[in-house]
């Protein structure tokens, strides 16, 4: 070994080089080439990831001008990738409004129309039937989800069962917001916890922190046929999400901040859902809180959900 080290070979330009150095250089070149080949699939990102998107600032740091440009870019992307003409808006929280939701479990019959309405309204991936709502069939006499089932397909309602739709509760003290390392998710003035889909790094810590399975991760790019894309889109709500980011129920803020009801409420054929402004004493939601015995899930955790359940 030691002898061969001292042997030299002659190379053009470089001149006399020890054989070992030459071998090392060759090995390093080979290694680099192999590395380049190994990560070559990354070239597939070209055209899918623009420089503007890479450099985009956090939502709260964007000027009106920035936003206009970004919305336009996103609208173009929706046209390119989904063939859909969409309009992205950014309605602001209405001053003096804090949203509350209530679900009458005596009335809910588990038909799941809310899940489907959410799926369509919010441009969820079609193949996974993604939805922010999950409806559980529970035996009467318990609120322990251990006995629940979200996969039932039989006719509803069934004797001895009640039905419990679960979605984001827009907690007053949201554990998911605290854990986010990059402030990609926050609570708005009206209580809605939103996600900046262009800032989220996809670490999924918020999914681990949520006690209610309210958050979803985009494991892949959502697939939606052009004609099914909902063109009425909000930047912080139902615009088509990129892959690799977390999303969640936003109480349909693109609707509710215009005074309209959320999609799941309108779709409910049983009238089990009641939505409104918690700060308005005359509102339906306040009437529920005043006249019904409401409860929230896992109250002991202290997250203080603003979606309430009641039986009447």
């Amino acid at each position: 070994m030691s002898d061969s080290d001292k042997r030299t070979i002659s190379l053009p330009v470089l001149g006399e080089v020890s054989r070992r150095t030459a071998l090392k250089a060759g090995g390093a070149t080979l290694g680099l080439a192999a590395f380049a080949a190994a990560v070559s699939p990354l070239a597939g990102l070209r055209g899918r990831l623009s420089a503007q998107e890479l450099m985009q600032r956090h939502y709260k740091e964007l000027s009106a001008d920035d936003k206009a440009k970004i919305f336009e870019r996103l609208e173009n992307e929706a046209k390119e990738r989904y063939g859909a003409d969409v309009k992205i808006k950014d309605p602001k929280a209405i001053p003096g409004v804090r949203y509350g939701y209530a679900i009458n479990l005596s009335v809910c019959n588990g038909n799941g129309a809310c899940m489907e309405a959410c799926h369509r309204e919010n441009n969820h991936d079609r193949s996974t039937n993604q939805s922010y709502i999950r409806v559980f069939e529970m035996p009467i006499g318990t609120t322990d989800f251990k006995h629940g089932d979200s996969t039932y397909t039989h006719d509803v309602p069934r004797e001895g069962k009640y039905y419990l739709p679960v979605q984001c509760f827009q907690c007053e003290n949201p554990p998911c917001v605290d854990v986010c390392p990059v402030e990609a998710t926050w609570q708005e003035e009206d209580g809605i916890v939103v996600v900046d889909y262009n800032w989220c790094i996809g670490c999924r810590y918020c999914q681990a922190a949520c006690p209610y399975h309210a958050r979803r991760f985009n494991w892949k790019e959502p697939q939606i046929p052009a004609e099914e894309v909902n063109p009425d889109q909000g930047y912080l709500s139902n615009r088509i999400r990129p892959a690799g980011v977390v999303e969640k129920c936003h109480f349909c803020l693109h609707r509710t901040r215009e005074g309209r009801q959320p999609a799941c409420l309108e779709a409910c054929p049983t009238g089990a859902r009641i939505f409104g402004n918690l700060l308005d004493p005359e509102s339906e939601i306040r009437t529920v809180l005043r006249t019904k015995r409401v409860f929230v899930l896992k109250e002991e955790l202290g997250a203080r959900p603003t979606l309430f359940y009641f039986f009447d």
Partner: peptide, 12 residues
């Protein structure tokens, strides 16, 4: 490698 968006690593 656990990040869904490694391209946004700089946000951290």
């Amino acid at each position: 490698v656990d990040l869904g968006r490694p391209d946004r690593f700089w946000h951290l």
